[in-house]
Computed example of a mutant assay.
Amino acid sequence: MSLALAPSTRAALADWLAEERALNAAAANTLSAYAADVTGFLAFLATYDGAPAGPARLAGLELRDMRAWMAHERGRGLGARSLARALSAVKGFFRWYGRREGFEPTAVLSVRAPKFRRKLPRPLAEDAARAVLDMVGESAREPWIAARDTAVVTLLYGCGLRISEALGLTGRDAPLPATLVIRGKGGKERVVPVLPAARDAVDAYLAVCPFDLAPDGPLFRGARGGALNPRLVARSMERVRALLGLPATATPHALRHSFATHLLEAGGDLRAIQELLGHASLSTTQAYTAVDTARLMAVYEAAHPKA
């Protein structure tokens, strides 16, 4: 698909991605998604025009070009959420490119993203979350794997980690300290307290893990000693939810949702929970929790000095 890009455009895209990495600390997965989305848009223009788009063409984009691209994407089955993500990447690139080349990408920036219903997370009930932690190792074929899976899900629920963050821990992090410095999305760091239950679960895994955990190597290992694949954690969750009769929404990520929701239900401060989760926006944290409006109003009325 990169063959559909003019050399100058390909170089500009590479420069933008490099700047996103250096100045905005964009994660590798984010950069890959940006590259795919913008390259897809530029490839569409090349097909639409019959030739790769150079600087003059990009500076002269019109609203009809954008509408044609969006219609094409919907026609090939792209959902509203994915199209909105792609449009956001295209706007980001053109905002940067316009500044560099000295033009206003009005047609690109004025396009509205398609509306879509944002899926609300579905956390587990407290008793269900505890049952998952107790039983996740039940079907493991070896005791050390059972201890490993228990340790991972305990970190997800007890510390609110993303699965990538838990599996990103190294031998240097063991034994777990009272607090962990976690590098999350966009390279943003946050400090996460480690509950005794999480520390104990990891200690139990360390006591039976058959592999040498080098300081720079992964803390959680697969059956052959390599880094633990997140898909294996998902499979463990699939097995335990079948045993417990939990819905398909009971995934590893649901444990992070549960962490946030149960903290808020217990009277935790929304801003503090935002920091623990590593969210840039408070609205993201609010969407992450399954506490209804009545509960939020009760917290507000109890805490506000004029209530």
Rank of each mutant, 00 (worst) to 15 (best):
G54A: 14
A204S: 11
L87R: 03
T154C: 09
A287K: 00
A214C: 05
A201H: 00
V194M: 01
D173F: 03
L213C: 03
Y205A: 11
A178P: 01
R183L: 13
N229I: 04
P7V: 09
R130M: 12
A242N: 05
L176G: 12
R10L: 13
D216W: 01
S2N: 14
A307T: 03
W16D: 09
T154W: 00
L45G: 08
A56W: 01
K188R: 15
P143L: 00
M66K: 00
L83R: 01
K91W: 04
L263C: 08
V291K: 03
A290C: 13
L167P: 09
M297Q: 13
R162G: 11
G187E: 13
L255E: 04
L87Q: 06
M70K: 04
A36Q: 14
G187H: 03
E104L: 14
L264Q: 08
E101N: 04
L277K: 02
F44C: 14
I182E: 04
A68Y: 01
A178C: 02
R141C: 00
R148G: 04
A11F: 00
A248K: 08
P123C: 10
E165K: 05
A125M: 11
S32D: 15
W144F: 03
A214K: 12
T179S: 12
A298R: 15
L61Q: 07
E189F: 03
L244H: 05
L180W: 01
Y97Q: 10
W144V: 03
R190A: 11
L169D: 10
D37C: 12
V38R: 04
D65R: 08
F41A: 09
F94Y: 15
L23A: 12
L5Y: 02
L169N: 06
I273T: 09
A307P: 10
A129G: 13
L31C: 12
G102W: 00
F94A: 09
A14I: 04
L58G: 14
R295H: 15
D149K: 01
A223T: 10
A178S: 15
P143H: 00
A280N: 06
L206N: 07
D292V: 11
P7Q: 06
E73P: 05
A290N: 15
